[in-house]
Amino acid sequence: VTVHVNRYTYHFDNPEEAEKFAREMAKRLNMTVEIHGNTLKVE
């Protein structure tokens, strides 16, 4: 599972951890999480 935050890319083996990380980053940056299959984008 890949998480994109701005120009950074993070890889996770565990989808739940990836989503938790993405949501935490989105909250911190006041952004939203978009899910595209195995890719989560924080925008």
Rank of each mutant, 00 (worst) to 15 (best):
K41I: 15
V42N: 04
P15C: 15
H11K: 06
T39L: 11
E34Q: 14
G37S: 03
V33L: 08
A26I: 03
E19Q: 09
T39C: 15
T2G: 02
K41C: 15
H36N: 13
N38I: 03
N38G: 08
E16L: 10
F21R: 00
F12T: 00
V33M: 05
T2W: 12
Y8Q: 14
K41H: 15
F21A: 02
A22D: 00
A22W: 02
M25A: 07
V42K: 03
E34P: 01
A18C: 02
E17R: 06
T2K: 08
V5S: 02
Y10S: 01
A18E: 00
Y10I: 06
E34L: 12
H11V: 10
Y8V: 13
E19S: 06
E19I: 13
N14P: 00
E24A: 12
K20W: 08
V33P: 02
E19L: 14
E16C: 10
K20L: 11
V1N: 03
D13R: 05
K41G: 06
Y8L: 13
E24R: 11
V42W: 03
M31E: 03
T32L: 08
V33K: 00
M25V: 13
E43I: 15
K27Q: 11
E16Q: 11
L40W: 05
A22P: 00
I35T: 07
E16P: 05
T32Y: 08
E16R: 08
H4K: 11
G37Q: 05
Y10R: 03
T32W: 05
R28Y: 09
N6Q: 09
F12M: 01
H11W: 14
Y8C: 15
R7S: 13
E19P: 00
Y8T: 13
Y10C: 09
N30S: 07
L40H: 06
T2F: 08
V42A: 03
F21V: 02
L40K: 04
M25Q: 05
N14M: 06
E34F: 13
I35E: 03
Y10N: 01
M31D: 02
A18H: 00
T2N: 06
L29N: 05
V3S: 01
N38R: 05
V1H: 08
A18V: 01
Y8F: 13
Y8W: 13
N6F: 11
L40T: 06
D13I: 08
V5Q: 02
E16I: 12
A18G: 11
H4A: 05
K20I: 13
F12S: 00
L40I: 15
M25I: 14
V5W: 07
P15R: 14
H4Q: 12
M31A: 14
